Structure formats: structure tokens, C-alpha cells
Amino acid sequence: MLNYIIKRILALIPVLIVVAVVVFLLMYLTPGDPVSVLLGDEATEETIAQVRHELGYDLPIYEQFFNWFKGLLVGDLGFSIFYDLPVSTVFFEHLGPTVALAIYSQLIAIVIALTFGVFAAKKRGTWIDNTLSTVSVLGISIPSFLMGLFLVLLFAVQLKWLPVAGYKPIEDGLITHLRYLTLPAIALGTMQAGLIMRMTRSSVLEVMKAPYIKTAKSKGLSENSITYKHALKNAFLPILTVIGESFGALITGAAVVETVFNIPGLGQLIVNSIERRDFITIQGSILMMTVMYVFLNLIVDLLYGVIDPRVRISQGK
């Protein structure tokens, strides 16, 4: 197991290097000058040139990249001139709301998807199956921010059950924390629920054709026992893959929903940094989000061996 983990981590190093190069080049080619935005319209050319020199923005691109990458090797993501803080500090200050929103959204998506995905597989070909399949397609098709606006209009404006927007940390109380996260979590989780539900249905239907399922039926096992104890368990590997990818997508792709609901997470950090042309913060944040995404995929791969012993055998663990 340890050798497998080490090999997977080493395999991630080239990916992270390529991401670092691409992110740096994209920021360099993006129009706009962070120094001009920082100093304002009234700043003179001499002042702008002086600050650019102090920040190293007047160096050749390869020197800027070398200095930035050298800092990455020792864990230094750079210094944000707008927040007046190290980028790592700014990133972790905004990480908590995003992770809380992602976990809540994923739990909603998993509960909905597994419940209705298995139910649709059991009712294959009926009007229930067709209805659930249509609902899953609608869930995938409707953008999260649009779903969020619909939810705000219904549950916050009309019914006044939940807050319109904002964020309260868990220190203010778990119930208050969840009330502010519920609408954005449903908005994000709906799309992921549609994806996971379709994968659950197709995976369970595929496993239901297996010979051991027929054997279980011939032994007189109940339908629920066959479906949940045998079929769902053996169909869970592809479902787990979708769950892992969707959780990574929730962390890295919640920018619009966080902006709509005014949640001070990573998405809002990236949006604000783009508006300010805070290239150092953008580079460090995107790189850290990429690291989180690839390590989530690593965790999913390791869970394969926990769920299915055949995976451990094939990998010699």
C-alpha cells in the first residue's frame, strides 16, 4: 500500500509542474497591470515604474517565473499586495467556507442520487424510471447559479424560511451555519445529484445482469437484500469515481454560486483577485486548488482497494 501511495504522489509532480507553468503564463498574458490598479488613476508613470521595480514586475518573464517557482519549492506562494498578507494565509482564510459548502452539497447530492438512482434501477422501464431520468437530466442542465436564484425567490423571498445570502461560521452555531449554507448547497448539489444518480442507475442495472445476482434470486433472498447488499456494493466503484470528481468540482467550481450568495470562499477570492489583477493571489490559489483536486483523486483511488479487494490484488497490495 505504501509503495502504491508513493508512486501515485510522484506521478502527480509532473502534473503540478505543468499546471504551475500554464497558470503563470495565463496570468502573464492577461491584460491589465496590478500596480496601476493598486495605485489608482492618479498615480504618475514614475511611481508606477518604481513600484513595478520593487515588486519585480519589470523583470523578464523567465526570471519572474523562476523566482515564483523557487518560492513554491519552499512552500511560499507569494505575497498579495492587495490583502497585504502571504497568499497562503489568504487562501486558508477563504478555504473554510468553500469546504463547508462542498461537503454539505456533496452530502445532499449523495443522499438524493443513491436513493433515487437505485429506485429508478428497480423500476426500470416504468413511468417512475422515466420520470426520475427526466428529473436527473433537468438537474444536470440547469446552471447552479440559476437554480440558486430560483431557490432564493421561493424559500427566502416568498416563504422567508432561509436567509437570502451571507455566511455564518460554525462558531455562531451549527443550525445558523447550516441555514446560511442550505440554499447554495442545494443549488450546487442538484447538478451533482443528477450526474451521480444516472451513474448509480446504470451501474446497478449492469450488475443486476451478473450471474451471482441470479443465484441470489434463486436462493430466495429479498429484493432489498439483493439490491443494496449485493448489487449496489459491487456497482459502487464507478459511482465512487463520479462522487470523487464531483467533490473536486464543488471545491474548484463554486465561484459563481459563492458570488451569488455572498459566501467568502475560494470562488469569491478568485473573482475578486481577477477584478483587481492580483496575479500572485490567483496563481497561488489556482495551484493550491489543483493540488487539492489531484489529492482527492488519489484518495478515491485508494478507496477502490478498500471497497473491492480485487483492486488490491491487481495492484499487488
Score class of each variant (00 low, 15 high):
Met1Thr: 10
Met1His: 12
Met1Glu: 10
Leu2Trp: 14
Arg8Glu: 08
Ala11Gly: 14
Ile13Phe: 13
Ile13Ala: 12
Pro14Met: 06
Ile17Trp: 13
Ile17Phe: 15
Ile17Asp: 04
Ala20Glu: 11
Val21Ile: 15
Met27Phe: 09
Tyr28Asn: 14
Leu29Lys: 15
Leu38His: 07
Gly40Glu: 08
Glu42Ile: 08
Ala43Cys: 09
Glu45Ala: 14
Ile48Arg: 14
Arg52Met: 00
His53Met: 03
His53Gln: 06
His53Ala: 08
His53Lys: 09
Gly56Thr: 04
Leu59Pro: 01
Gln64Phe: 08
Trp68Asp: 00
Leu72Met: 12
Leu77Asp: 04
Tyr83Trp: 13
Pro86Leu: 08
Val87Met: 09
Thr89Ile: 07
Val90Glu: 06
Gly96Leu: 08
Ala100Val: 04
Val111Ala: 15
Phe119Thr: 07
Arg124His: 14
Gly125Cys: 07
Trp127Leu: 15
Trp127His: 03
Asn130Arg: 15
Ser136Trp: 12
Met147Thr: 15
Leu149Arg: 09
Phe150Asp: 00
Phe150Ser: 05
Leu151Ser: 02
Val157Met: 06
Leu159Cys: 00
Gly166Ala: 04
Gly166Ile: 07
Tyr167Met: 02
Pro169Gln: 07
Ile170Met: 14
Leu174Pro: 02
Leu178Gly: 11
Tyr180Lys: 05
Ala185Lys: 00
Ile186Thr: 02
Gly189Ile: 03
Thr190Gln: 00
Leu195Gly: 03
Ile196Trp: 11
Arg198Phe: 03
Arg198Ala: 05
Met199Thr: 14
Ser203Arg: 02
Leu205Asn: 08
Ala210Val: 00
Thr215Asp: 01
Thr215Glu: 08
Lys217Ser: 12
Ser225Cys: 07
His230Gln: 04
Ala231Gly: 03
Leu232Cys: 03
Ala235Glu: 02
Leu237Ala: 09
Ile239Val: 15
Ile239Cys: 13
Thr241Asn: 13
Gly244Ile: 07
Glu245Phe: 14
Ser246Met: 05
Phe247Ile: 07
Gly248Pro: 01
Ala249Tyr: 11
Thr252Gly: 15
Glu258Leu: 01
Thr259Tyr: 05
Thr259Ala: 04
Asn262Phe: 11
Asn262Arg: 13
Glu275His: 06
Asp278Phe: 11
Gln283Asn: 05
Ile286Phe: 13
Met289Leu: 14
Met292Arg: 03
Ile299Thr: 11
Tyr304Leu: 12
Pro309Gly: 13
Arg310Leu: 07
Arg310Trp: 05
